[in-house]
């Protein structure tokens, strides 16, 4: 009996109770302790991207794209300025690793028009640059596999295949040889010609907005 009575009293006051619940929930949002959220992508996602081999681009593929003057390639040299002056791939832009987070270079890596390809003497600096960029949620980042060392061994100064090797190896060799000619063997004048295709990069912050919505 008393239970029924209680329920009845609750029902009479149901709107007050619901209003109170809403009020408490809203107040809860204000009162909850705030914490700073990580920007960029979640660690597990980064891990997934990191262990995928898709983030590497081989020297042969890069040579091919450069020879064909693929406009979507944006080469970024992550070595120091001095090394960059010494030798660099054609049209590369020098962003030393420690300057990667500078405001004025942000536009080069935080975009989705070009395929950004990091390179250094080997993989190390380029890999680190890739991880920092990817962690911030930037897309289209790649690493030149093996870096400039491999570039020299494969493109500039390719190894002559053994005679016992299959025909493909010879085809690859001739491709590399031709590509090496294109880039000029051991050139140093290469970097003075510098940027025949002027890259105009619109420094536009990507919005993470989804689709066009609304009515």
């Amino acid at each position: 009996m008393s239970k029924k009575y209680k329920l009845k009293r609750l029902l009479v006051r149901r709107y007050q109770i619901l209003a109170a619940i809403l009020f408490i929930l809203a107040a809860g949002l204000v009162l909850l302790p705030k914490y700073k959220k990580n920007e960029g992508i979640a660690p597990d996602l980064l891990m997934k991207k990191m262990i995928s081999s898709e983030r590497y681009i081989s020297t042969d593929l890069l040579a091919d794209r450069l020879v064909n003057q693929d406009p979507s390639v944006l080469l970024i040299d992550t070595r120091t300025e001095k090394e960059f002056q010494n030798y660099a791939l054609p049209n590369a832009i020098n962003i030393p690793l420690k300057k990667l987070l500078d405001e004025d270079v942000n536009g080069y890596i935080n975009q989705d028009i070009y395929d950004v390809i990091f390179y250094s003497n080997d993989n190390f600096y380029a890999d680190q640059a890739w991880i920092i960029g990817s962690r911030l949620g930037y897309t289209n980042l790649y690493v030149l596999e093996g870096g400039l060392n491999k570039w020299f061994h494969t493109i500039i100064n390719p190894e002559l295949p053994d005679e016992t090797m299959p025909e493909e190896a010879f085809e690859l060799y001739s491709f590399r040889k031709a590509a090496g000619m294109y880039f000029g063997v051991g050139t140093s004048e290469q970097k003075t010609i510098n940027k025949p295709i002027k890259k105009t990069i619109t420094v536009k912050k990507k919005k993470k907005r989804v689709a066009e919505g609304g009515c």
């Binding site: 929930l25 809203a26 949002l29 993470k208 989804v210 919505g213």
Partner: peptide
Amino acid sequence: AVVAVIGLYYMDYLNWIDISQLYVH
């Protein structure tokens, strides 16, 4: 509107949804 906005911000707080990724008119 109140239920939706409170719910979405609680979900954002709990990291179930990223408010900044939602379409804003």
